[in-house]
Amino acid sequence: MFLIYCPHCGEHREEEEFHNHGQAHIARPLDPDSCTDEEWGNYMFFRKNPKGLHHELWVHAAGCRKFFNVTRHTATYEIKEVYKIGEQPKVVE
């Protein structure tokens, strides 16, 4: 089990209260109509699957129901940092 720090509640809570929503920082194309199929396909379906640092979107589903970002090491499961939506990660490879 993880103990995850919720930046909105300001304390650590059990993983049971959270859901992982996959890769963070996926920007929707500004003009979807002019995307090529490849660009749209990449946006819709293609995700990173790194062994190492991964920036992920999590939601405090059973708590405050707010989304936030987590930088997690996918091999050690160590959470390197937690930051709010709209902020940029400090821990990068």
């Binding site: 509640c9 809570r13 059990e14 049971e16 209260e17 059973a62 708590g63 405050c64």
Partner: peptide, 10 residues
């Protein structure tokens, strides 16, 4: 006050 899991409910 906390909102949390309680007996598989909340």
């Amino acid at each position: 006050v906390v909102t949390s899991v309680f007996a598989k409910s909340s």
